[in-house]
Design a protein around this nucleic acid. Structure first.
Length: 401
RNA sequence: GCGUCGGUGGUAGAGUGGUCAAUUACAACAGACUGUAAAUCUGUCGCCUCCGGGCUACGAAGGUUCGAAUCCUUCCCGGCGCA
């Protein structure tokens, strides 16, 4: 019996997209929805009230980071994540699988979640000559050893360990431990990694079921498979054969590969369970995901960009620190209804950023999160109103200028 | 007036004969960021450039030297001490 109830209200014609409602023990998520990222039990620079007031329905925290500090036992003893961080609405936790990637294969390289591949030879990369740059994560068949980036201590995370930590943290939706691979890995490596991810998925699920937490916490399995259609479909088929409550779509992408990967997977996944595209969140990617049947997204982009001064507007991104905004009395985005746009000028936010005032990061985050959360809400609305295509076309025409 | 210390690029502040167009920090100008090693990181930052280099620069003017931001002389300016 799942702790979630997912219902689809409306589907896109001839497409995989749909609008629905996902009911969790801490309330409803209207899908498609954008999940705000709060890695260390905090959406950086924002209070939970600010996150809620800007319209967010759900946040995602990170297992690896919270495991290192303050520790799952402490969070559990303090009443679980909801109480600990004073966020009464739905919470998800990522399994630490992304850190296998970001602290492992991607460590010290120019590889990120989405990489623009300009040189195709990069795609054939080498898992090469061990090891110019020492990594903080090393993958074994049974789990992953991490070297803590702040005190150097060694930690071993297995699928069981990850789920155990996530049980202690107590989020509504938790994820199976997976290996997020770099798109530069060879097909052979992708196959090996996928095999591992599948074994880990099964072990995550078995551990989860054995603990009886399934009444309060839902477990999502993660589909991997890189950029290969065969592997992606194989993964979607296998993961959906297991009794997960929903699915994550993982991987690091070359930008141009993302939409095909998502479509391949969602053509296979069962329609009646929610799908979460992990770590994706630029506007054009959100349209792509929604159109291809994604229900949930999370991404650090709005908050990370917001703190640094890159702000979303309907006419594209602007860097509010730029000199041209120093005397600009208008709002960040004349079409935006967020707290920041209703109350502050570009000039003021520009000043705050330049002055390194903390409020700058806060206002930037509020605006960006509102912009993205609201954008996905409008996509949802447009599905319900049968004008998704029109909305998408009009939005992107101006956004991508 | 005498003595003394000092005057370096937007600022602070290194450098005390060549490897100096000058460490570094800040400021300035721009860029990056997609399950957060991120309130972070990167580039540019005298002028010109066919990006090979060229030119003008370390208070001012002279001088010593193959070579000076660095040594000498005078002057200008500032701090301090003594009158």
């Amino acid at each position: 019996m799942s702790s979630l109830k997912f219902s689809i209200e409306k589907k896109l014609q001839q497409k995989l997209g749909r609008a629905g409602i996902l009911l969790t023990p801490h309330g409803a998520i209207h899908t498609p929805a954008f999940v705000s990222v709060g890695t260390k039990a905090a959406v950086k620079a924002l209070t939970p009230e600010e996150v809620r007031d800007l319209g967010a329905e759900v946040v995602l925290a990170n297992t690896y980071h919270l495991y290192l500090d303050p520790g799952p036992g402490r969070v559990k003893n303090l009443g679980g994540l909801h109480k600990f961080m004073n966020w009464p609405l739905p919470i998800m936790t990522d399994s630490g699988g992304f850190q296998v990637f970001s602290l492992g294969a991607a460590y010290g390289k120019g590889i990120s979640k989405v990489t623009q591949i300009t040189d195709p030879s990069l795609m054939i990369a080498e898992r090469s000559s061990e090891d110019e740059i020492p990594r903080l994560a090393k993958i074994g068949q049974d789990g992953v050893s991490f070297r803590s980036h702040h005190d150097g201590s060694l930690h071993y995370i297995t699928p069981e360990k990850s789920v155990e930590i996530q049980h202690d943290l107590g989020a509504d939706i938790i994820f199976a431990f997976d290996e997020c691979t770099s798109p530069t890995e060879t097909l052979k490596y992708q196959e090996e990694a996928l095999e591992r991810t599948h074994i880990w998925a099964k072990r995550s699920l078995e551990y989860h079921k054995s603990k009886g937490n399934s009444e309060r916490q839902a477990l999502f399995g993660i589909v991997q498979g890189g950029r290969d259609e065969g592997l992606r479909k194989k993964s979607a088929k296998y993961i959906s054969s297991l009794d997960f409550d929903g699915f994550g779509i993982g991987g690091s992408f070359a930008k141009e590969d993302m939409s095909t990967a998502v479509r391949w997977v969602n053509e296979v996944l069962p329609e009646d369970k929610p799908r979460h595209l992990l770590g994706i969140g630029e506007p054009e990617d959100l349209f792509m995901g929604v159109e291809n049947g994604v229900d949930l997204f999370d991404c650090v982009a709005p908050t990370r960009n917001g703190r640094g001064g890159t702000l979303y507007t309907h006419k594209g991104k602007i860097n509010i620190r730029n000199a041209e905004f120093r005397d600009d009395p208008t709002s960040i985005d004349s079409e935006c209804q967020c707290y920041v746009c209703k109350n502050y000028s570009r000039a003021y936010v520009c000043h705050l950023m330049r002055a390194h005032e903390m409020l700058g990061g806060t206002l930037g985050s509020i605006h960006n999160l509102y912009f993205i959360v609201n954008l996905v809400k409008r996509m949802r609305q447009s599905i319900l109103e049968d004008n998704f295509e029109k909305f998408k076309k009009e939005f992107l025409a101006r956004y991508l200028h």
